[in-house]
Design a protein around this nucleic acid. Sequence first.
DNA 1: CGAACTGTTGAAGTTGATCAAGTCCGGTGG
DNA 2: CCACCGGACTTGATCAACTTCAACAGTTCG
Lengths: 233, 233
Amino acid sequence: MIAVPTRCIDCAVRDVALCASMSDDELRALSDMGRRRVLPAGQVVSWAGEPSSSCASVVSGALKATASTADGREQIVGLLFPGDFVGQPFQDDASLTVTTLVATDLCIYPRAGFEHVVDDHPRMERLLLERTLASLSQARGRMLSLARRSAKERVAGFLLELADHTGESGPDGIRVRIPISRGDLADYLGLTIETVSRQLTLLKASGVLGVARGGRDCTIRDRARLEGVAGPQ
Amino acid sequence: MIAVPTRCIDCAVRDVALCASMSDDELRALSDMGRRRVLPAGQVVSWAGEPSSSCASVVSGALKATASTADGREQIVGLLFPGDFVGQPFQDDASLTVTTLVATDLCIYPRAGFEHVVDDHPRMERLLLERTLASLSQARGRMLSLARRSAKERVAGFLLELADHTGESGPDGIRVRIPISRGDLADYLGLTIETVSRQLTLLKASGVLGVARGGRDCTIRDRARLEGVAGPQ
DNA sequence: CGAACTGTTGAAGTTGATCAAGTCCGGTGG
DNA sequence: CCACCGGACTTGATCAACTTCAACAGTTCG
C-alpha cells in the first residue's frame, strides 16, 4: 500500500463520488479522515463476515463485490468503478468480499467517522440514499437476468451494457474492452467460464462480434443483431 | 377500494413501518396525506414503466414486486409484508410491477408529498436509508441463490426462511404456511411450477416435510435434515 | 355435478455444467 | 533467439438438472 497525499479539490472523482454533495469547505471533515491508498490487482479490500470497519470511494481502477456460499460457489453481485462507493455503512459485519480487479486507488474512511459525516451532512445522506436506491434497482434487474435469461442473452446483454457505458465507436463498429477475466465474467453472469467462452465464440462466428487476440478487446460489428440476441429489453 | 379512516396512533404498523421514526406530533404531516385503502387479492398497485406517483406502507396483507422481460418472463424480486415500504421514491418511473397477493390494507401517500416529508424528517430519511441498505443486502443474497443454488437448495432455503419468519412450533415439527401459490413461488425462486412441485414432493417423500391438503400448510418435521438439503448457508 | 383452478406426475427435450484435452500467449531463462 | 513453463482461454464429449409439453388429480364453488 502506498499513501497518496492529495487535496480533495484536485481529486479525479471530486464531482462524481459522494463528495460531490459537499462544498469545498465541508470537504475538510472528510478530507481529514480519508486516506488514499493504491492497491495492486487481486487484493481483498474487505472479507465477508469480518467486521466492516471502513468505507471508501473508488478514485481509479475497478473492484468486484462477491457473495459466496459456504462451499465456495461465488457470485459477483456488483462491479465498482471510479466514483462508486464501497462499503456497508450502518451494518456491523460485511456480507460481501470486495476485491480489486486491477490496480486501484481508493479514498478510505473509517466507517464510524464516515457515518458521522453522513449524520452531519443531509445532502450527502440524500445522495447516498439515492445511490442505494439505484443500486437496489440494478440488483433487481440482475435478479431477473440471472433467473430468467439464457446464457446467450446474458452475454449479449453484458456486451451492450459495456457498449453503453464505455464503448467507443470505431471504423468497423463499437469498440469495447471487457474489463475482467473470463472467470470473473462467468461469476458475474452466473455462468461457467466454458459457457461464456462458447457464447462469445458463437457471436464471433455469426459475425456480430469481433474478438481481438487476448480475448479482451472486442468490436461490436452489428449492434442491432446483438440486441436481437440479447432478447427483449 | 374502500376508504378506511383511521388515526395513525391506532395503526397496526405504527411501530414497525417507517412511521416508527416519527413522534405522534410529527405524524400529523403524514397522516393528513396518507389514504388507507383495502385492495382485493390480485390487484396491481403499480405498473412497471408508468410514472410512479405514490408510495405506501403495508398495513396488512402481502404483495409481490415483479420485474419482467418484454416477452413476459417474470421474476418476483421482493415480497412485501406488513410494515414494509412500497414504492420507489426519487425515481420518476416505476421499474417494478407491484401486485397484491391477498386482500391488502395499504397506507398510501402521494410520492411528492412523501418525499417532502422525508426532506423534513431526518430520522425518517435515515430509517429509509437503513431499510434500503437492508433490501440491497437481501437482493444480493438472492442474486447468489438464483445464480448458484440448485432447485432443491432454493426450495429448502425458502422453507427455512419461512420457518424463521413466521414458523410456529407444533407437535410434530415447525408449522409454516406458504403464503403464495406454486406459480408465485416458482416466480420467486426462479424456477418453474413443476420443478417447485417436484422438489416439495421429494421433501415430503423423504419425510423431512409434511404437506397438508391444499399444499399450502406444511410441517417441517426435521429441520436439521432440511438444513442439510438447503446446503451451506 | 361440472367448470375452472391449482397442483401433481410423467416422458421427452434442452440448456448449461462438468470433465478432459488442447491452444494461445506472455514471460523466463538457457 | 528459441525452448519451455504457467495461466488464461477455447473446444469437444458427456452428463445432469431443469424445462417443456402433456395428461391427470384435487379442490372450490357455482
